[in-house]
Design a protein around this nucleic acid. Sequence first.
RNA 1: GGGCCCGUAGCUCAGUGGUUAGAGCAGUCGGCUUAUAACCGACCGGUCCCUGGUUCGAUCCCAGGCGGGCCUACCA
Length: 1111
Amino acid sequence: MGLDGGVRMATRFEPVGSRFSAPELEERVLRFWGDREIFRRSIDERAGAPVFSFFEGPPTANGNPGVHHVLARVFKDLIPRYKTMRGYQVPRKGGWDTHGLPVELEVEKQLGLSSKREIEDFGVAAFNERCRASVFAYVQEWERMTQRIGFWVDMQDAYVTYSNEYIETCWWIFKRLWDHGLMYLGYRVTPHCPRCETSLSSHEIAQGYHEDTPDPSVTVRFRVKPAHYHASAPTPHLHLEDGVPTSILAWTTTPWTLPGNTALAVNAEAGYVLLEMDAAGGGRERVVVAADRVEAVLGDAGDIIDAFRGRELVDVLYEPLFESTTWDGVEALVFAPDGRPQRLKASESAPERRVVAGAFVGTADGTGVVHIAPAFGEDDYQLGRSAGLMFLQPVSLSGTLVGGPWAGRFVKEADPSITADLRERGLLWNAATIRHTYPFCWRCDTPVLYYAKPSWYIRTTAIRDRLVETNQTIHWVPEHIRDGRFGEWLEGNIDWAVSRERYWGTPLPLWVCELCAHTECIGSFEELRTRARAATLPEPFDDPHRPFIDAIEIDCPQCGGTMRRTPEVADAWFDSGAMPYAQWHYPFEHGEQFESRFPADFICEAVDQTRGWFYTLHALANLLHRTEDVSEPIAYRHVIVLGHILDGDGQKMSKSRGNVVNPWDVLNDHGADALRWYLYTASPPGNSRRFSSELVGETARRTISTLWNTYSFFVTYANVADFDVAAAVDPGSRTELDRWVRSELHRTVRQVTEALDAYEPADAGRPIADFIEQLSNWYLRRSRRRFSRPDSEADRQAALHTLCECLTTTARLLAPFTPFLAEELYRNLEAGPGSTTGASGAGAAESVHLATWPEVDVSAIDEQLSSEVATVQRMVSLARAARAKAGARVRQPLATAVLVPRTPAERAALERLRDQIQDELNVKTIEVASDAGERVSYTLRPNLPVLGPRLGSDVGRVRQALASADGSDIARRMRTGQPITLAGVDGIELAASDILLSVEAGEGWAAAEDGGYIAVVDARLTPDLEREGIAREIVRRLQDLRREAGLDLADRIRVTFQGDGVITAALAAHGDSVREETLADSILAATPEAGAVQSSAEIDGHPLTLALLRA
RNA sequence: GGGCCCGUAGCUCAGUGGUUAGAGCAGUCGGCUUAUAACCGACCGGUCCCUGGUUCGAUCCCAGGCGGGCCUACCA
């Protein structure tokens, strides 16, 4: 305005109350950020700076966000805010995960559909439209929460996995993989939900295990064929020539797989036995089981006829449990070289059921013989393939039996009938029920079946070694994830089953010729337009989802036939792993952005993403590096892996358990800063943590509220003193205390910076909390008088400057952690209220989040001073403990305190800082000594860290000798530096540093000791001391009365008192100081004046009535 | 079943091959008093999950268990 005529005005800070409402403050800051576009500017104003790249792991917005989501989001926020202050440009593009089974099932529920058949009847186009709409049902809730907790992420420009551009990039990736032979159609056993009729990923399976699931446990007789059926002579160990009916026993928990049985597997090296016993229906029978299993399966029944290795049983033929006459409708298939079961050629006959060897067969349970049904188990399938077995598939994809007496029945419901049938036909050895863990579909709770069927695979095993190797270059926090959970998962890598027989997902861009099976992968929409038969291309082609994409046909270049798209969509995890490329529609667009942000410098998710997002990102980066499409084989350099939030009982929070804490309750009660601070500092990020709103409040009170009070104190006195931030401070005016707190401050800056550079938020937060504690409870408490009644103006300005620096620097340190509180402090203290340039001077950034990270002022750090004050604090604390033992309240002056630290350097420090100590302790004389002399008696202990390595096993004897030695004598020798020898321990000479003393106070003294530090106080009161104590007590009571009377700070008073001789004597001796402290014009022995405020109580047993009136 | 993490005071968590294992909160008692819906001190509170081993010495290192969490796995 130019009205100051060049006269510099001192800053006036916005007044700050000692109480504050965090939610109110935070809403105010949020408005400020919004009005001034601070987030956008924190990125834009860093244009040209090196980019620090952050990838947002996309949340699925189909449920309300809980506290566990807040956890991830506040950690995602921390590092980018820090790096921004360190001068990087940190773009933060948001994203949403929108495809997949959870979305489909949500819609199925809404529509009341329960099978794929019903979805197709409803119409895939309409169904997918509902999916598209449902994904964003909760987006507003997410955005509201995200904003309220102060997570800065660009949600306007977020990527969406269902967008055409996103899908096109996924196609490009598939194409690159396909062209490099990294994709194939495999025929394999996968977990299959018969209701959803699709494969489930391992991640999905993991969510649906039910413990204690009851299942049948049946042991079955497989009848060995008579000798003449065998092509070559069967092993003589079976003694088939005896003509006794002989069976091999096998155990299963899935009777419904028995119609699919085509082999029995034994362990070639294990021992087996042939036993004979009475048969149930009369006569004798013989059975084969593993030698280890005889007792468990047969008890003591039966006599051992022969014993042999498993290999002897290989190629023994046995009869099918179900004759083809009773189980029709299932065609016998054989394995083709590519692993796919195929029909028999006319000239072929089906392989016979026989015994084979399998390395996976153990003898720890069952019978040591495994029933093999290649259609239903991974081991079974692989064995079938390698041994050339017959393949029978008597179960449909919807989980019902095909053919046989129970055709159409759901497999689990058919189990009892199958078992009963076997019992009737004498083939059942034993039936019972067991309880074990079994997988169910995590969404619809249908028991999952393992099922051999075709599926598209990404050949991740081709790059397994590279996955492992490049993982070593990723910085994992906590470190153990790298070689532990994640590393081991990579070591055991199997090919990625990437196809899903569903509707709402990225369609696989694979077209297969219906005549010759020629397959092509289409890598872009343009390529598809070019290749498509014009008549089949929808016009306009604006949605690459099903069902539209399915209509498009391509001419087969090999045979001229029709190529149709394979009907599957991609695993939604493929979408998430494709995010570094697809979020930019790379390589079709935005090549520059992609290049500058790949790989990410930082990502952060909870530990359950180890085999989810962390894996898919890593796998795709490695694959695309293999195809030479990206420059680096990793997608992220640093990753913080978060543990889960548990409820008060240590249970994981989840919707299904109903124990999710609503973040809004916490936010409304304590505010976002408190919640954030708690999450950062409660424990290292990788630990799981129990959570409750109360704990958040507790943490906040301790640190945030302490800082706020300090801030409020500063502003109050700075305004009173017309404090000018910009005025230079005279270094000579700085006191020792000023120098100390600056040393602590810059030590803190150093620690916090190092910890954040190491991606360890908890280690970074704790020093800040410690500093705030020191600032408030040592610096400020000890400096109070310098602010309210300073010795000189220069002293006051120095104190204000020092405190101001501490607060503004702390605000910057806190900015990434508690961005709202930090902003409040910064705005008021540095940028000036309502200012855009900073009232305190030109160039102050408008927001702390546009400001720079504090530099460590190395010259401010005085390690010696810091450790000296630490010693003072320790000794003061000890002396207070000694006071308490003596029963002397702090206002009661004592004559002497003797302080005994451990080293000469510490003694020197205490001598130097004697004034501070005296002040804190309220004693007349401080004595610093190397021992407490005759005031105490000693007990002795060996200094084990010193003596242990030197003496080894002699330590025990020294310990005993010290315990029985004369403490005072040895203490005297230690004091005078004489060598010490002990009775009963020959040849060992001890020095003072080898022995530790503990003390017991002598008569009239009180002592406290901790870790070799000793404080002793004189507990005896002289009449003088007593009078002084009483006088100080009177001061306190008068101050109370002043407050009670509602007087102002500067009001003067008249005092009357009624007391005994001791009271009178105390006031006679110390009346001047009492008057001075309480601003009293007079203190008279008299009855209270009319209208006076008064109180009566005893001091040390002396009755006293005090009364005061405003003068 | 396997892997990883965790197990320390009533609660939430530090910590270390070495003296008498700590902090905050809670509880009890006391103190302070214009930072005051704060603050300071003391006390109370411990089988450092258990059992073995290594060691002069183990809460810490090793082995085996137990319990919790997470991840993973249809051995029939």
